[in-house]
Every structure is written in C-alpha cells, then in structure tokens.
C-alpha cells in the first residue's frame, strides 16, 4: 500500500471519513482551550467525572427516542449540568469540599446511567453510548459539534479575563468583581457542552481524553498561556487525524484509536518534553550566568 492510499485516499474516497475529520477538527478547537484551563485550575479529574455524569441523561434520551442524536445530547447536557450545579451547591451549602461532592454526584449518576441502559437497552447500545462512533458522524451530528465549538469559542472570548484571574488569584478577583462565580459556571457549562459534543464521536468515557491528553502534552513544550491553548488544539486535531487513519488502515475502533494516539504523544512529551520532561530534568545542560 503506497502513502497516498494510506494517508490521503481514505478522505478522498469516503464521505464518512471526511465528516469524521471535520468533526474531530471542530472538537479539537473547543477541547484545546478547555483542557488547558481544566489542567491549570487543577480540575483535570473534574472533566472525567463530568464525562461519567452525562451517561444517565444520554441513556434517558435513548430510552425515550432511541438512538436519536438530539434527545441523547439534550439528556446528557441536562444530566451533566445537574451534577455540576448540584455538586457546587452542596460544596457551598455544607462543609463537604467540591471534589467529594462531585465524586458523590457523578458516581450516583453513572450508576443510574448504566442501570437504565442495562435494563432497557442491549450491550451494543451500551457500547455506543460509552465509546461513540466517530465514523458514524452524520450531518446533524456535525452541525451539533460545530455549533457547540462556535458557542465555546465565543463564550471563552467573553469570560477569558475573569477566568484567567479566577485561576491565578481568586481572592483578588472576588475583591474587585463578582464575575469569578459566573465565569466558573460558564466554564463548567462549556465543559459539559463539549463532552456532549464529543460523546457522539468518542463516547462518554473517552470524550474527556481529547481535552486532557493534548493539554497535558502541550504543557511539556510551552509555558505561555496562549501558546498552550493553540498547541493543545493542534495536538488534539493531529491525534484525531492520525487516530482516524490508524482506525481506517488497521480496522481498530476509531474513538480509542484517537485517544491512544493522543496518549502516545503524551508519553513522548513526558520523556522528551523540553519544558520539565524527564530528560530535560536528568540532563539539564550547563547552567546559565544569571
């Protein structure tokens, strides 16, 4: 098989591959900045918890309307927001910290979701919800993902300043403005929206992978915030592109292939990354003058 047949032909010949490529491109644009902020705000595992929390909503949508994109997405969105808001309310109204209340909420949510799918669906349905079908993205799913990405980028532009301030110095922001809480909720909503967008392609469990792995990888190469966001999106898109090609050429499932490619990039960055990677720490080079 020549390089053209391996790398280019799949996209030229098959519409589902082109749709999948556009889908992961749109997902990467939103996932990049969100993943970076999740990581910098020490909320990496919050993204994972939220991805589990989406499951019962998607399952209820599936129960009511079958494999209907909008019903499952809307259900996922409502469930994700309920868990995010519920955990936040419990954390503020009681002595429990937010991580503990979030863990409680998402575990309950996950159990409800698996129960619903197991009782009323088949194993195939469960697999679809858990792992998605990036190669099955139709026009409606593509529009949904693109719409979510557009909303994400516009909203991020609006909340960027308070989000950065709230991440660096929340006490200071609280002393000059009330926008910290608003930007936090808006940010969590964007995370849930993007996970809902991503679960059609990658499934609820892997959707968060496209956010966190590229962000963690980018951290080993650049230290500037804007560069982190840009590089994270580029890595997410390249992971999507290479993952799709791996999936096409080797017959592997597309979602896990994409996330594994991002995982390999992360592994390489941990070892070779110039900004704090293992090698740069073991072999720092000669010291500077000042």
């Amino acid at each position: 098989m020549n390089p053209y047949e391996m790398l280019i032909a799949p996209f030229v010949e098959f519409e589902f591959m082109r749709r999948a490529l556009v889908g992961v491109f749109a997902l990467a644009l939103g996932a990049g900045p969100l993943g970076v902020f999740l990581m910098l705000r020490r909320m990496s595992l919050t993204g994972d918890a939220m991805s589990h929390a989406i499951l019962p909503g998607a399952a209820i949508g599936f129960l009511l309307a079958g494999l209907n994109l909008y019903a499952m997405s809307l259900g996922g969105l409502v469930a994700g927001l309920l868990v995010a808001v519920g955990a936040g309310v419990v954390a503020r109204a009681t002595e429990l910290k937010e991580d503990a209340s979030l863990a409680a909420f998402y575990l309950i949510s996950l159990a409800v979701g698996v129960l619903i799918v197991s009782v009323r669906g088949s194993n195939v349905d469960l697999l679809h919800v858990l792992f998605g079908t990036v190669l099955g993205i139709d026009n409606a799913a593509l529009l949904l993902i693109s719409g979510i990405t557009t909303v994400t980028l516009f909203t991020l532009a609006i909340i960027w300043r308070p989000l950065v301030m709230d991440s660096v110095d929340p006490t200071f922001l609280a002393s000059v403005s009330r926008s910290g809480g608003v930007s936090h909720v808006a940010f969590l909503t964007l995370v849930v929206l993007n996970l809902v967008g991503g679960f059609n392609a990658l499934g609820t469990l892997l959707a968060v992978g496209l956010m966190m792995l590229p962000a963690a990888t980018a951290r080993f190469f650049v230290r500037d915030l804007s560069a982190l966001v840009a590089l994270s999106s580029v890595i997410a898109f390249l992971s999507g592109l290479i993952g799709l090609l791996v999936s096409y050429n080797f017959g592997t499932p597309s979602g896990p292939s994409i996330i594994l490619v991002a995982g390999i990039a992360y592994g390489g960055a941990v070892v070779f990354g110039p900004a704090g990677g293992v090698l740069s720490r073991l072999l720092p080079g000669r010291h500077l003058e000042a």
Binding site: S167, D169, T171, F172, L225
Partner: peptide, 10 residues
C-alpha cells in the same frame, strides 16, 4: 500570603 497559584503561566 495571597492564595495565588504561582504555577499559572502568567
């Protein structure tokens, strides 16, 4: 001791 996140890239 302002609760500032000094690891944030700013």
């Amino acid at each position: 001791g302002a609760d500032l996140d000094r690891s944030f890239p700013i």
